[in-house]
């Protein structure tokens, strides 16, 4: 019997911030959990990220940002997804994000926010949970 296909994920770094340690680590632990993870590299525009997500047919986009520009840039990614009719693609995020911004991001449509120090297992489990939820919804 053929292997069931695995959901593909995208890890992207929007904006100008070049700190990619967290993004790469999360990409690696998701790979270790059996996902196929498309990595965009640093300094990507929301347009590049959304176009990539669509062409790669990913189930979710993870955005990492340490510069504090998350409200503007995460918002832009969500907006573009909606305009492309791809709002079913989940968006999660991480980085230097003050707790007070988390409710605002969630309201915007960010499914989960991971701040520094979140254990790998928790990240993987949350994403898996969200993907299952999305399928059964």
């Amino acid at each position: 019997m053929e292997q069931p296909p695995k959901p593909r994920l995208l890890i992207g770094k929007p904006g100008l911030d070049g700190h990619d340690r967290g993004a790469k680590y999360v990409a690696q632990i998701l790979r270790d959990a059996g996902f196929e993870v498309v990595y965009t590299g640093i300094r990507r525009s929301p347009e590049q990220i959304v176009d990539t997500a669509i062409q790669e047919d990913v189930a979710a986009i993870g955005l990492s940002l340490l510069s504090g520009a998350h409200n503007a840039l995460f918002g832009r990614v969500l907006e573009l997804l909606r305009s492309r009719g791809a709002e079913d693609i989940l968006v999660f995020g991480g980085g230097t994000i003050p707790p007070k911004d988390v409710p605002r991001l969630k309201e915007m449509g960010v499914a989960a926010v991971f701040t520094p120090g979140t254990p790998a297992r928790q990240i993987v489990e949350t994403i898996e949970g969200l993907l299952v939820q999305r399928q059964t919804a």
């Binding site: 296909p5 059996g34 489990e125 898996e128 993907l131 299952v132 059964t136």
Partner: peptide, 9 residues
């Protein structure tokens, strides 16, 4: 776990 997700996917 990824396979579990995959099955539903």
């Amino acid at each position: 776990v990824a396979q579990r997700v995959a099955v539903s996917w």
